[in-house]
Simulated assay, not measured.
Amino acid sequence: MSFDNVYAALTGDGDARWAFGTGFSDPLAGVEMTPADDALAGYCLMLGDDALVMSHRLQEWITRAPELEDEVAIANIALDLLGQARLLLARTGRDEDELAFHRDAAEFRNVRLAEIPGGDFAHLVVRLLAFSTWRLAVMDRLRLSSDTVLAAIAAKSVKELTYHRDYAARWAVRLGDGTEESHRRMRRALDEVWPYTADLFAADPVESAPFAVDPATVRAEFDQVIAEVLGQATLPAPPDAGKAVPRGEHTGALHPLLEELQSVARALPEATW
Score class of each variant (00 low, 15 high):
4 D>Q: 07
4 D>H: 06
5 N>P: 01
7 Y>G: 02
8 A>L: 10
9 A>Q: 06
10 L>A: 06
12 G>R: 07
13 D>C: 12
16 A>T: 08
17 R>P: 02
22 T>D: 03
23 G>K: 09
29 A>R: 14
30 G>P: 08
33 M>W: 03
41 A>R: 01
41 A>K: 01
44 C>A: 10
47 L>Q: 14
48 G>M: 11
49 D>H: 04
49 D>T: 07
50 D>T: 11
53 V>P: 05
54 M>Y: 11
55 S>I: 15
56 H>E: 10
56 H>C: 02
58 L>T: 08
70 D>M: 08
70 D>K: 05
72 V>P: 07
73 A>P: 04
73 A>E: 12
75 A>G: 05
79 L>N: 05
83 G>H: 14
85 A>Q: 12
97 D>P: 00
101 F>E: 03
102 H>Y: 15
115 E>V: 00
117 P>S: 11
120 D>H: 02
121 F>T: 03
123 H>T: 01
126 V>N: 00
127 R>P: 01
128 L>N: 13
130 A>S: 12
130 A>V: 08
134 W>L: 04
136 L>E: 14
138 V>G: 02
138 V>Q: 02
141 R>I: 10
141 R>C: 14
143 R>C: 13
145 S>I: 02
145 S>Q: 03
147 D>L: 01
147 D>S: 04
149 V>K: 06
149 V>Y: 04
152 A>N: 15
156 K>E: 13
161 L>R: 14
161 L>M: 13
163 Y>H: 14
163 Y>C: 14
164 H>K: 09
166 D>C: 06
167 Y>F: 15
172 A>E: 03
174 R>Q: 13
176 G>Q: 05
178 G>P: 11
179 T>G: 07
179 T>P: 04
182 S>R: 12
183 H>L: 07
184 R>S: 06
188 R>W: 10
189 A>Y: 07
190 L>A: 05
193 V>T: 13
198 A>Y: 08
199 D>R: 04
199 D>Q: 03
201 F>D: 06
205 P>E: 12
205 P>F: 10
206 V>Y: 06
208 S>L: 03
209 A>D: 09
214 D>C: 09
216 A>E: 15
218 V>R: 13
221 E>W: 03
222 F>N: 06
226 I>H: 04
226 I>T: 00
232 Q>F: 09
236 P>K: 08
236 P>L: 11
237 A>Q: 12
239 P>A: 13
241 A>P: 14
241 A>S: 13
244 A>K: 02
249 E>P: 00
251 T>V: 12
252 G>E: 00
253 A>P: 02
254 L>P: 00
255 H>I: 05
261 L>G: 00
262 Q>F: 02
264 V>I: 06
271 A>Y: 13
272 T>W: 10
